[in-house]
Simulated assay, not measured.
Amino acid sequence: MLGKIEGVLYGGAIGDAMGSPTEGLTPEMIMSKFGTVTTFREPASDAWKEPGNMRPLEKGNGHITDDTLMVEAMLKVYAKKQSHLTAYDIAEALVEEIAEKNVYIPELRKEAPVISRLYYPEQYLFLRHRLANVDPREAGQGNMVNCGAAMYMSPVGIMNAGDPERAYQEAIDIAGAHQTSYGREAAGIMAAAVAEALSKDATVQSILSVARSLAKDGTKLAIESVLDAAAVHLEWETAREDLRKAMEPFDTVKNFSDRKKTGKGNANTPSRIHSIEELPIALAMFSIAGGDTMKTIIGGVNYGHDADSIASMGGAIAGALNGELSLPNEFKKEVDFVNKRSFKALSQVAYTTMALILKNDKVKFESRINRIDF
């Protein structure tokens, strides 16, 4: 189990770091700038070096992004609480973790609060819980709907290892403090997929079946559509165009460059017929790769669009299934070194926390059984 948890964290971090330079690019642009990306690459642009740049993010060179920073913050909250979490824990402990504590942020090349690196929909956590004082269970209302909650739900899967239904329910509750609609739904499915992947008898098909069966509304339709499109491909290189066509009817943003703009019709607004792109595509790449961790990551990286989140989610799910031995040692060492942290040490903390939560769950379950007359 420790090795599988290391697979989650290293798989997510490596996918995040590899996908960072290709984020926002089309496959054609990726090929022009980099060729096929199979390792950590330099930033796609030197804009971060320009004097006066107010947010000089060095997106490349193995640097993790906000996806992994939020996963790390969530694991710290679980370690602090040593219990399953609720939306109230997000309002209190996670907001404290991202707003009041400094960590090394590689893209900024300095220590700073995580919130200084977050995109506006993720900064919404601070606005709603500290400034507006909204009920945590409803705080996600009004936020831009995106993958912001889904991208850091792998810890929920870890703490509910082997129980995807419980992981889904906990993630739906937690994500309500941050997201709404299909952004919240994707968070539940991401947690469930990781929880299933951590089962000792998990398979690629069991993980995909969990995603299909638990998903609701547009998220379910999008997952089914891209998985059906993926089923006729053996390699990600031939699949990208078909996957995008399968995803497009459910994506509220047709042009990736429009994702950060407002006033674009129904883009990023609540809907029961739409879905975020990142999770369905991550599952499709996982399916095409036959569950192989690095193939899943590389497929996501070279898909483009929100490549770091796609590759990070896919890497976490595949890493959960296959464990840390499915990832190259040189990548694990480099992602630790350049980001000035140890994902192996973080995995040990996660494992210890998960074991305690599981022990307490067992005691509660046995107590419940003893109160029932069969």
Rank of each mutant, 00 (worst) to 15 (best):
Val8Met: 05
Val8Leu: 08
Ile14Phe: 10
Ile14Arg: 07
Pro21Gln: 05
Phe40Glu: 06
Arg41Glu: 09
Glu42Gln: 07
Ser45Ala: 01
Arg55Gln: 09
Glu58Lys: 12
Lys59His: 02
Asp66Gly: 00
Leu69Trp: 01
Gln82Pro: 02
Tyr88Pro: 02
Ala91Ile: 07
Ala91Gly: 12
Ala91Ser: 15
Pro106Thr: 08
Glu111Cys: 11
Pro113His: 04
Phe126Val: 15
Ala132Ser: 07
Val134Thr: 14
Ala139Asp: 10
Gly142Ile: 11
Gly142Val: 11
Val145Lys: 08
Gly148Tyr: 03
Ala149Val: 02
Met153Glu: 07
Met153Pro: 04
Ser154His: 11
Met159Val: 14
Glu165Arg: 14
Glu170Pro: 05
His178Lys: 05
Gly183Asp: 02
Arg184Gln: 15
Arg184Ser: 07
Ala193Lys: 04
Thr203Glu: 05
Ile207Ser: 08
Asp217Glu: 15
Gly218Met: 10
Thr238Glu: 11
Thr238Gly: 15
Met247His: 09
Met247Gln: 09
Pro249Arg: 08
Pro249Thr: 02
Ser257Pro: 04
Lys261Ala: 08
Thr262Trp: 00
Gly265Lys: 06
Thr269Val: 11
Ile276Val: 14
Ala282Ile: 08
Phe286Tyr: 11
Phe286Ser: 03
Ile298Gly: 04
His305Glu: 09
His305Met: 00
Ser312Arg: 01
Met313Asn: 06
Gly314Arg: 03
Ala320Tyr: 03
Ala320Leu: 04
Asn322Gly: 10
Asn322Arg: 13
Pro328Lys: 05
Lys332Leu: 04
Glu334Val: 01
Glu334Ile: 07
Val335Glu: 10
Phe343Arg: 03
Phe343Thr: 08
Thr353Pro: 01
Ala355Cys: 01
Leu356Gly: 06
Asp361Phe: 03
Lys364Gly: 00
Asn370Thr: 07
Phe374Ile: 12
